[in-house]
Every structure is written in structure tokens, then in C-alpha cells.
């Protein structure tokens, strides 16, 4: 058994932070060992963002922080104090689906749907980055999102359709 540090008292470690998630500010009293993913899911109770590995190896937890896609499982909530975060729940505006959401439905770009929130947030990040030119670029730049159901070809078709309309 490895050496483990002496316990740190919870109160002593607690921070008060503000996360703006989908344009709504949430003030949280939170310990530093809470990841952004767990903060979103268990503390703010926005469960659209998924935990698929908790190790940065699957992309299911992808959210947008200040417009950039990241793995929310590998950052601490306290590190994102003041950040502007978009999760899948904030992608549609006023009940109107984001074009990517509609394209995912139309192209059947998912089966079980578990990786889908991460795929869509990742694809939004991809479009924001503006680096994907070819179909192969989309494939490479969507490779940080695993899909065990194997919907990749449909995901690429959905992203390509929306990209081409931009």
C-alpha cells in the first residue's frame, strides 16, 4: 500500500467559486478535489455531461470552457472559478436545437446516446477552432470522442453537413 498524505480537513479546504454554466451563474462551496465533471453532474445536477472513463480517455465529459472544448474530468472545479461553461443542456437556444443536434438526429449519429453530449460539444469546439478542412480532418479532430456503438461515419456526416453550411 502506498503512502497516503495525512487527511486535510474539509472545511479548511473549502472554496467558494462561481461557475457560469449555460449563462447561469452558480455559486458553489466546494472542495478542491472535486473535478469540474463531478461539480457539473453531482453539485449543479446537470447530468447531460457524461462520465465514460474519468481519465481523459473517452471524451464523454467534453464541455466548452470559454468556447474551447476540454475534458471536464481532468480539471478541478476550483481551477475554473469564473469560467464560462457550456454543457449539452445549453447548446439549444430557446428550445430550438443547435444545427449539430438536429444533424445528429437526422444522420442517426448515435445509438445508445451516452457519448452524444460529448460528441456534440466536441463538434462545436471543432467548428469554433476552424481547423478542419477535409473529411479526414473532421475524423482526426473528432478522434478524442470514443463511440462504442460505432456511429463514427454518421457523426462525421453530421459534422460535415453543419460545417459545409457555415
Amino acid at each position: 500500500m502506498d503512502q497516503v498524505a495525512a487527511p486535510v480537513l474539509v472545511d479548511q479546504a473549502t472554496h467558494t467559486i462561481t461557475l457560469t454554466i449555460n449563462k447561469i451563474p452558480y455559486e458553489l462551496k466546494i472542495q478542491p478535489w472535486v473535478t469540474l465533471l463531478d461539480a457539473i453532474r453531482e453539485y449543479v445536477q446537470l447530468t447531460g455531461t457524461k462520465k465514460g472513463c474519468d481519465q481523459g480517455q473517452c471524451g464523454a465529459c467534453t464541455v466548452l470552457v470559454n468556447g474551447k472544448r476540454i475534458n471536464s474530468c481532468l480539471t478541478l472545479a476550483v481551477m475554473k472559478d469564473g469560467a464560462d461553461i457550456t454543457t449539452i443542456e445549453g447548446v439549444a437556444e430557446d428550445g430550438i436545437l443547435h444545427p449539430l443536434q438536429q444533424a445528429f438526429i437526422d444522420h442517426d449519429a448515435f445509438q445508445c446516446g451516452y457519448c452524444t453530449p460529448g460528441q456534440i460539444c466536441s463538434a462545436i469546439g471543432l467548428l469554433n477552432e476552424g481547423k478542419a478542412r477535409t473529411k479526414e480532418d473532421i475524423q482526426e479532430l473528432m478522434s478524442g470522442n470514443l463511440c462504442r456503438c460505432g456511429a463514427y461515419t454518421n457523426i462525421v456526416a453530421a459534422v460535415q453537413q453543419v460545417k459545409d453550411k457555415l
Binding site: 502506498d2 503512502q3 497516503v4 498524505a5 495525512a6 486535510v8 478542491p32 478535489w33 473535478t35 474519468d54 481519465q55 481523459g56 475534458n71 481532468l74 480539471t75 478541478l76 476550483v78 481551477m79
Partner: peptide, 29 residues
Amino acid sequence: KSMFIAGGTNLIDLMKENVLHPDHLIDIN
């Protein structure tokens, strides 16, 4: 037992896996 944290992509992973055990993180971002 203090460590710096920047992106966190490797450090947080290793902390979750119980491989690294800092007692204090200094966020340098």
C-alpha cells in the same frame, strides 16, 4: 508534498488513480 498544477491532464489522472498524493496544489494558471 506540494505540487504545481497547470493543465492538470496528467496530474489529476494520477491523483485519481492513487499514484500521486500531493497535500497541496499550487495553481499556476
